[in-house]
Design a protein around this nucleic acid. Sequence first.
DNA 1: TGGTACATGTAACATGTTACATGATTAG
DNA 2: CTAATCATGTAACATGTTACATGTACCA
Lengths: 176, 176
Amino acid sequence: MPRPLNATAASLLGFLHDQPMSGWDLVRTAEERIGDFWSLTRSQVYRELAAMAEAGFIEAGETGPRDRRPYALTDAGREAFAEWLAQDPGRETIRYPLLLWMSFASQLPEERLHRILREHRAEHATRLAGYEAAQASILPEAFEADPYGLAVLDFGLTYERAVLDWFNRLLEARAG
Amino acid sequence: MPRPLNATAASLLGFLHDQPMSGWDLVRTAEERIGDFWSLTRSQVYRELAAMAEAGFIEAGETGPRDRRPYALTDAGREAFAEWLAQDPGRETIRYPLLLWMSFASQLPEERLHRILREHRAEHATRLAGYEAAQASILPEAFEADPYGLAVLDFGLTYERAVLDWFNRLLEARAG
DNA sequence: TGGTACATGTAACATGTTACATGATTAG
DNA sequence: CTAATCATGTAACATGTTACATGTACCA
């Protein structure tokens, strides 16, 4: 059909393998399952859904309560998803405004820098705690079912711990 | 003048504090100094330069060899940059196709997964080596001059080490 | 019966990517 | 003199963000 799937659209097809879902459901599922390393917005989701319905990758079902419109995966969609999976994933993009800001911050008041660093550190601490709770609540069966899902969670833990260490070193070194 | 600076445009103004530079120079400087956590493309740079010249934040100088057109910071540009610096930096965005792909990879052949993981690990090892070399070549005076620049480099080291650890654990656990 | 969470969507705009087009300078 | 690198830019498109507009169902 049209051009190849982008990663965002592909992820939606991925979720639709489990069951038909509405745009709303997909936004929430994506936020929960991949939100930490692949963000998307409602607008994007509705746009991609419309485009994929047009392309025949998904089909809208009966409108339910509250105009709820569940989309179901078609065979063409399943195929498009498989093609996407068959491509090698690209490298990560990190856009870290704090680092950019710090690269230019040499003449900023220490006080302000420390406030910002403490705020960001607190956010990372919260996220780390969330991952730790998630890890603690994992049942052994889950590992059998989806070892890679666990690896992804482990990435989150590893990342947040490293970042938190960095904040701690930085603030301690500068008596923050 | 028009809407507030975006981070990409702001970084260009930041670099122009040192000296007038052409679009080409800016692309290379940005790649070198902030490329690891703030990527930008040539097209974007030329577009932002045109917009900022229009807004009066920079001024094009005499055209040099090869149509080289150096842009110099104006007072208005200095002010706009200062305003940007005065805002609190937002949180990071990470888009990690590998993790997205892994979240859906449970029925992919192990062999392929391992190949991909090894490739990505190698890239991270290379980047880490680059940071370590950069760190080793730092003179003590540099710390006095720009402690935050060093903190940014330290972030890179911390990040790459953590990621590399993750790859190693993953590949060892699965006998890669 | 009123507030909260659910639900969908459009419009306008900002940002980022890729491909195309052109030519100058320099090193060998 | 010719290939590589430097240098600038446009066009077209893809992706991501923000604001606006509309209404429904559920729970207290």
